[in-house]
Structures are given as C-alpha cells and as structure tokens.
Design a protein around this nucleic acid. Structure first.
Ligand SMILES: NC(=O)c1ccc[n+]([C@@H]2O[C@H](COP(=O)([O-])OP(=O)(O)OC[C@H]3O[C@@H](n4cnc5c(N)ncnc54)[C@H](O)[C@@H]3O)[C@@H](O)[C@H]2O)c1
Ligand SMILES: NC(=O)c1ccc[n+]([C@@H]2O[C@H](COP(=O)([O-])OP(=O)(O)OC[C@H]3O[C@@H](n4cnc5c(N)ncnc54)[C@H](O)[C@@H]3O)[C@@H](O)[C@H]2O)c1
Lengths: 218, 218
DNA sequence: CCTGAAATGTGAATCCATTCACATCGTTCA
DNA sequence: TGAACGATGTGAATGGATTCACATTTCAGG
C-alpha cells in the first residue's frame, strides 16, 4: 500500500505539532483532538494514521510517543539529507537562519550564489560558494537537495545546472514553474500565488472556499 | 458557476507566467504550450480556462492579452488590498522587500512587531509599528490582509488579536496550524513540511508521487 | 471554394480524497 | 465481574478533480 502525497504532507504536520507544539505532559491524544488542532476532521486523521502500521486503542487514543516514532519510520527520518541553498539573497539567508536550528535530519551544509561578493564567506553559519563549484562541492558533501532562491528569470537555467550536477530533490521558491527530468523530486512554493489566493477569498465574496476551515498546503 | 480553490490557484500562476515570464512577441498561446510550461496536461489547462468566459479559437489558441485580461476580471484584480506583515524578523523583512515591487493591487503598507527596537522605524521602506497599535493602524489604513511571520509559539495569540482588530484574510508562515472564525480567509505555507516532502521523495524511493511532473502548490 | 490538419470545448469516464456510518473493542465504573 | 460508554478501524458512499475522447470549429493551401 503506497502512501499518497497528500497523506505524506499531513503526516509531516502531525509530527511537527506533536514534537514541538504539544503539551509535554499529555501522553495520549484522540483523533478528534488532533483534528481540531490541525483544522480537519477526525475521520481524516484516523485515515491518515492508518498508514502507520500503529494502532490506537479505543477509549484511550494514540500514545504520543509511539505516534511520533511510527511517523518517523514511515517518513524515513533516519536518513540524513544534506541540503544546499541556491541563491543567498534575502530569502536564502532567511531560510539559512531558520532551517539551521531545525530537524537534525535535514542539514543545510552549503549555499551557492553567482555574486562574487558572497563567495567563500560564511553566511548565517553556512559556507557560501561560487556557482561554478556546485558540482564539486555537491559531490564532496553528499548534497542531495537544493532550495532554489534565485530570481525567476534565472530559475530554469540554474535548475539545469543543478540537475547536471546530480541533484535529487528541489524545493523551488522562484515564482515560475521549472522543468526537470523524471526521477527528481520537486515541490514548489509560490508565495505570490498564495497571497493572491488569500486576497481572492478576502474580497467580500461569500465565505471561504467550501466549508473548509484550514487550507491545504499548499 | 462557482470557481474552485484549485482552479483559482492555477489561474494566478497562469497569469504570473503570462505577465512576467512569457516572450513579449508571442501574441497567441496554445493550451498545450501553457501545459508544458506549467507542468500539467493540456486538457487541464483548457478546463481551467473555461471558467473565464473567454474562448480561444481552434487552430489559433488563446490571445495572450485577452487571457490576462479575463483572468484579472475573474480574480478581481481591480480591487486593491492593503496588507500588513506581522512579525518583522528575517522572513518578514525578506517578504517586505520581495513584495514591495510586485502586483500593484497588493500593497504592503505596514509591519507590526512587539520588539520595541523595531517600532516606529522604516524597514525596507515599510513603516513598522508596535503590536498594540495594530487595531488603530489597521482601521486607519484599511488593512484587510495580514502575513503572519511570528514564531510558532506566538502564532495563535497574535492571530486572535488580528481577528479582534478586524482582519479579513491571513497568510500564515508559522509552522503551526492556527484557528480562526469562519468568514476569514486563510492560507498556510509550511516550509518545513514542504522540505520534508522533498526529502521523502528524494530518498531512493521509486520515483516521484504518481507520474506528476510538477507538484501542486501547496 | 473545398479539403485536411490542428486546436478547441465539453460530456462522460475515471481516479482520488474525504466523509459517513457502524461494527468492534478496551476501559471504566457500578 | 459485567455492562455501558466512547473511541477506534474501515467498507461503502459521496464528492471533486483530472483525464479521455471526440464532435466541432477554424485556418491554410490547393
Ligand atoms: N524574498 C522573499 O521573501 C521571497 C518570497 C518568495 C519567493 N521569493 C523568490 O525567491 C527568489 C529570491 O528572492 P530574494 O528576495 O532572495 O531575491 P534576492 O535578489 O535578494 O536574491 C537572489 C540571489 O540570487 C543570486 N543569483 C542571481 N542569479 C543567480 C544565478 N544565475 N546563479 C546563482 N545565484 C544567482 C543573486 O546573487 C542573489 O544573491 C526570487 O525568485 C523570488 O521571487 C522571494
Ligand atoms: N526565516 C524563514 O526563512 C522562515 C521560513 C518559513 C517559516 N518561517 C516561520 O516564520 C516565522 C518567523 O520566522 P523568522 O525567521 O522571521 O523569525 P525571527 O525570530 O527572525 O522573527 C520573528 C519576529 O516576530 C516578532 N515577534 C515575536 N513575538 C511576537 C508577538 N507576540 N507579536 C508580534 N511580533 C512578535 C519578533 O520580534 C521577531 O521580529 C516563524 O514562525 C518561522 O517558523 C520562517
């Protein structure tokens, strides 16, 4: 039974909630508690948790510790990924400082930028290299994932170079869709589009989309 | 015929592509061209464009100018929204500089922060105010949308204050789900979760989710 | 003017995600 | 101990979104 992308996304959010924003003294949790905290329905939570191979007990709920442990298993949290930020501008730097302190399994180990001013410096604790050393450094450091923070006009070009250098996954912040060969993972975060979506539903239009209370990721 | 949230999201991206990253000399575009550029299927593009009330001509495609114009109509681009960034930290500041130069209909007119150091200063061209002046300034400036960039631990508390102050839409960057009353628009962008999704599909697992080439927003 | 090629618009089919509804089970309390 | 309660796990129903497939339209070329 393969695990759908939607479910995957929610599993990561359950985990974040449980590990970081959950009362430490609560040892058990009910599906309907998770549901109201996350903003979706109890049966959806139960469905999602079904893929874990861990089962709650009726009348008692799920053991928080076990839940986290099994989500880790499914999400393969044991595997460490080395990550590079590509484009050390405003956003890139914000991400470096933000992600530096996060999950130990996702390590930001390098930044790349074609601005010569930035090369060979430490930025927010991350060493920054010239773009033309990307392949060398990636190989050497075992970097598999890139966070793309270059201007939209350069996004496809830079992507192509990363692909040649052997990247395996890309998180794209440039507000333009990029094309990559099959076999490479890609997620896109389009901030402008998200803001425009909010604006659309904010206009005195009748309510939010459907009756959903929390929005999907994306 | 109401327009679904999914379609909405894609319309904003078609528009961005056509207005900003499209050859100026191309006057017409085919559904299959848009499709490959965006990374989805031609029939999906045609479905999406059906809601516009504008029709392409067979053998000729869609007129780019008309397309943009009709998307603007549907997305209500004529209405101007005043936006506040709440939490003028690393991310907040990056967003201010980024969005300052963007769509004229979404204007960043203020920032709020509870750090007294930041109050009453201009940050990236945006005036920053103390948190307790939020209600006053929001009323005065006609602010309807907030971009939430405060730490997760403060997110719900700050949200509640914004709601009381009369906010109509929120774009939440804090990595924790927030709850709001019905009638207020909400979009969440969870960067950590997105990165974890990339990592999940990056692991030598068999390919990306399904056979999709570009990922959904969000 | 007529024919063929190529793209559109859309009903129907398919696929996927979410919700419903309820049998089942473990816990608690009398 | 046993009965009643309250939560789980899940088959079936529902609802949406995507894709298929094709009739229809338009243009180019002879
Ligand atoms: N700033 C934000 O909050 C924000 C939010 C969402 C999306 N974005 C997007 O993220 C991207 C970066 O935004 P930013 O605000 O950090 O811009 P920025 O101008 O501050 O930074 C861009 C960086 O990319 C580098 N760069 C440019 N071309 C390059 C190339 N070919 N190879 C390597 N590096 C190159 C530049 O030297 C610069 O350091 C843009 O596409 C923007 O649309 C930014
Ligand atoms: N930095 C990033 O790239 C990034 C990316 C994704 C998500 N986020 C999220 O965005 C949020 C902000 O991240 P950041 O890196 O900018 O953090 P930061 O610490 O740089 O900035 C947080 C800002 O919020 C202000 N603040 C704190 N409590 C407040 C309150 N109660 N009311 C008003 N203002 C308050 C602080 O004074 C500070 O200026 C966090 O939730 C983080 O998880 C950050």
């Amino acid at each position: 039974m393969s695990i759908s992308s939607k479910v995957m996304g929610r599993l990561t959010r359950y985990r974040a909630l449980l590990t970081e924003y959950f009362p430490k003294d609560k040892l058990h949790v009910f599906s309907h508690e998770l549901a109201t905290m996350m903003g979706f329905s109890a049966s959806q939570v139960r469905r999602d948790l079904m893929c874990l191979g861990y089962f709650g007990v009726p009348r008692y709920g799920y053991e928080v510790k076990e839940l986290i442990h099994h989500i880790n298993d499914v999400l393969d949290a044991s595997k460490v990924h080395h990550v590079a930020v590509v484009g050390a501008g405003n956003l890139g730097r914000a991400l470096m400082s933000f992600l530096g302190s996060r999950r130990a399994t996702l390590k930001i180990v390098a930044a790349f930028d074609d601005d010569p001013q930035l090369a060979n410096r430490l930025i927010n604790g991350v060493p920054c290299y010239a773009m033309d050393r990307a392949e060398e450094i990636m190989k050497h450091q075992g970097i598999t994932i890139a966070i793309l923070c270059v201007p939209g006009s350069a996004a496809q070009r830079v992507t192509d170079r990363l692909v040649i250098a052997g990247i395996k996954g890309i998180l794209n912040f440039a507000p333009v869709p990029i094309r990559i060969p099959v076999g490479i993972a890609l997620e896109e975060i389009d901030v402008t589009s998200a803001l425009e979506r909010v604006a659309f539903y904010t206009t005195s239009r009748t309510g939010t989309p459907k009756k959903r209370r929390n929005s999907p990721q994306e």
